[in-house]
């Protein structure tokens, strides 16, 4: 029983991490149709901003959260301005390749200017302590991560429903031209989408980093692949889908890890990706995705 509860908490926290990242991918995809593989580099940038801030004059690990979030948001806005604005009207292919290009450039920029080797980073100590409930021992990190994710998702829902820019973003996912006809600047909507994706990536980054305890230039590539899988599972571009897909993926991974024999768990990622392939062939629009008419794109 205790083992089961621990695994459930574990699954929820892993799932929330994926959901945070997947939401960022989905919000950008829903508006400009870009599969942003450079999303993982937002985590890396967040990590290095904590590292540099600590190295220069902000030693308190309490500042990790705001610094990481700010760094990731600025990086997301910068990526949009420098690379993605130029390809806004291009095909998905162009978008995917550009995003991969940006991701390679950023990774190697860190290799060139910092180092390949991992650097240790301090996050608040209580994050890595254990919470004791009766006989249960639960990591504080996992509980905080799940709670923060719930709050972030609720805040995002309020933002999307109650504010003008949120309404504009939801509308832009359906009909961008109509949004612009209503007098809303396209750049503002897209900027907001990237800023939100950066904000969510920054949040996730803090948890990823306190779990790893160190940062390196390539740390973003595995999480972004997972987030991407989560997005696809839920249906690319659907925000509810991203959350559901993220949690489903987290639960699936933890289940595979916990209940499969050791020789098989080495193949865990292969199994996960095979499952994604099957879902994609059965439901090309994802589990919660909408079916698009092919004709729409030609208009």
């Amino acid at each position: 029983m205790e083992y089961l509860i621990q695994q459930v908490v574990n699954a929820l926290s892993v799932g929330s991490e994926y959901a945070l990242l997947a939401l960022g991918l989905a919000i950008v995809f829903s508006i400009i149709g870009l599969v942003n593989f450079a999303h993982g580099e937002l985590i890396t940038v967040a990590g290095y901003s904590i590292f540099f801030a600590a190295a220069i004059y902000l030693p308190s690990p309490w500042l990790a959260l705001p610094i990481a979030v700010l760094g990731a948001m600025l990086a997301a806005i910068l990526f949009e301005r420098v690379a993605f604005r130029a390809i806004r009207n291009a095909s998905t292919n162009t978008g995917i390749l550009t995003a991969f290009g940006v991701s390679i450039v950023v990774q190697n920029a860190f290799v060139i200017f910092v180092a390949t080797r991992p650097k240790p980073v301090a996050t608040p100590e209580w994050l890595s302590s254990m919470l004791e409930v009766g006989t249960l021992q639960l990591p504080v990190l996992q509980i905080v991560e799940t709670l923060v994710t719930v709050v972030a998702i609720l805040a995002l829902a309020v933002l999307l429903r109650r504010t003008t820019i949120g309404l504009a973003m939801r509308a832009a996912a359906k009909d961008f031209i109509a949004v612009r006809l209503m007098g809303i600047k396209a750049n503002r909507v897209i900027l907001a989408a990237f800023a939100i994706s950066g904000f969510l990536a920054g949040l996730a980054a803090v948890f990823i980093i306190s779990r790893r305890g160190a940062i390196d230039p390539f740390m973003g590539s595995v999480p972004v692949l997972k987030a991407f899988v989560a997005c696809v599972l839920g249906g690319l571009g659907s925000l509810q889908g991203a959350v559901v897909g993220g949690i489903a993926l987290g639960v699936l991974e933890v289940l595979l890890q916990a209940f499969l024999p050791r020789e098989v768990t080495m193949f865990r990622d292969a199994i996960v990706f095979a499952a994604v392939a099957i879902v994609l062939v059965k439901f090309p629009e994802g589990l919660l995705g909408r079916k698009h008419e092919l004709g729409d794109k030609e208009a």
């Binding site: 130029a86 390809i87 290009g101 450039v105 950023v106 190697n108 290799v111 060139i112």
Partner: peptide, 22 residues
């Protein structure tokens, strides 16, 4: 010494190619 320059070069080529000459 600048390790990572090859990757940096490849990434830059991909991004520039996609933005300037698709």
């Amino acid at each position: 010494e600048m390790f990572g320059l090859t990757g940096f070069f490849l990434g830059t080529v991909i991004v520039l190619c996609m933005t300037l000459r698709r």
